[in-house]
């Protein structure tokens, strides 16, 4: 079974994001870049499916700058078989739909039985990709899955989605798109041998023309990033606890209208 995992390189979760000199983007100096954590769940699940079935191929794909190759290399170190790097000036200011079109085109070429996304990238938290790609392909899509079992004949998948207090269980014919929620699995650490082996695996460069795509203008444009206004200082209510609590409740009810 061939499984394609689209991933995104994002700033490390501990990054204190600063708005850049060009306010349309962030200041990238000193940032550590990682594979978006939800995408790691997707890679891990793909590897587990392959291992469980005893055969298959896991292909990691990303659209991004030259630096994004490092994220693909991390996926290869975890165990992915090969990677595709979509990189072209035509995609420089790509919006979600442009990226989705590129991914859908590469998926048509690769013809995997399953596409596994992370539920969203943790940088812009847009979360549009799984649904947009599925729509463009005309494939079924289940998002935020917590568990999955591929049928023995490899023709369908039983997937459980997290809903309030329960699991929503679907039977979905393959090929389909799934997106991984935290809790789907515990991603493995790349082993040192895996890291050594990763440099021997292929990262293929894919240009827009290779996918038969022309540069089409983004419809969604970032105008500017704005810092949140600083938080107003907290208020300390003095006095005896019994009196202070009364004042706290009154203030929550009347001033903040929180209760």
């Amino acid at each position: 079974m061939k499984i394609l995992v689209p991933i995104k390189q994002v700033p490390d979760t501990a990054t204190q994001v600063k708005i850049g000199a060009d306010p349309k983007g962030i200041d990238t100096t000193g940032i550590t870049w990682i594979v978006s954590p939800y995408d790691e769940y997707a890679v891990e699940e793909a590897l587990r499916i392959k291992e469980k079935r005893g055969q298959g191929e896991v292909v990691a794909v990303t659209l991004g700058s030259e630096r994004a190759k490092e994220a693909l290399r991390s996926c290869l170190a975890m165990g992915a078989d090969r990677a595709l790097h979509l990189s072209d000036p035509a995609w420089e200011n790509a919006d979600t739909l442009t990226v989705a079109r590129a991914l859908a085109a590469v998926i048509k070429q690769e013809a995997p039985q399953l596409v596994l996304f992370g539920r969203q990238a943790i940088d812009d938290d847009m979360g549009a990709m799984p649904a947009q790609v599925a729509e463009l392909l005309g494939w079924p899509c289940a998002s935020w899955i917590m568990e999955e079992t591929i049928s023995d004949d490899g023709k369908s998948v039983r997937a459980g989605r997290q809903v309030e207090g329960a699991l929503d269980i679907f039977n979905i014919p393959l090929p389909c798109v799934l997106s991984a929620q935290k809790g789907l699995n515990e991603p493995r650490y790349p082993t040192l041998k895996g890291i050594m082996g990763a440099k021997k695996k292929e990262i293929k460069d894919v240009k827009a023309a290779d996918l038969g795509l022309a540069a089409d203008g983004a419809q969604l444009l970032v105008v500017a990033l704005e810092a949140l206004p600083p938080r107003p200082p907290g208020r300390v209510i003095p006095g005896e606890p019994a009196e202070a609590v009364k004042e706290l409740v009154r203030s929550l009810r009347e001033d903040a209208k929180a209760i």
């Binding site: 490092e70 290399r73 170190a77 650490y189 082993t191 040192l192 890291i195 990763a198």
Partner: peptide
């Protein structure tokens, strides 16, 4: 090298 950084980061995370 990229490989040396990957090794360090893997052990650091672990």
């Amino acid at each position: 090298t990229e490989e040396e950084r990957m090794v360090r980061d893997a052990i650091r995370d672990w």
